[in-house]
């Protein structure tokens, strides 16, 4: 499975990692296109329902970052 491109659903905190992602974009940094970003108001918004739903609908992994 050399050409396997995973779908990674990532839940990013608005104030932390989402900001970092924004900065990475502004800085034109290169990073893998496999993450699908969902912005949440705070990592405290994260609920087990979210990532179970993501996996159930076919995501390969879930990444939560605050």
């Amino acid at each position: 499975m050399a050409d396997f491109e995973p779908k990674i659903v990532s839940f990013l905190c608005n104030w932390c990692s989402y900001g970092a992602a924004d900065l990475a974009g502004v800085g034109r940094a290169q990073y893998p296109p496999n993450v699908r970003v969902i912005r949440i108001p705070c990592s405290g918004r994260m609920s087990p329902k979210f990532f179970l739903a993501a996996l159930r609908e076919g995501a390969d992994a879930v990444w939560v970052s605050g």
Binding site: C16, S17, Y18, A21, A61, W63, V64
Partner: peptide, 18 residues
């Protein structure tokens, strides 16, 4: 184990994000 990952990145750390 790897299906669910957590991390902690500050909004100033774009390199860490990458």
């Amino acid at each position: 184990p790897g299906r669910l990952q957590f991390s902690w990145i500050s909004s100033a750390e774009s390199t860490k994000f990458v």
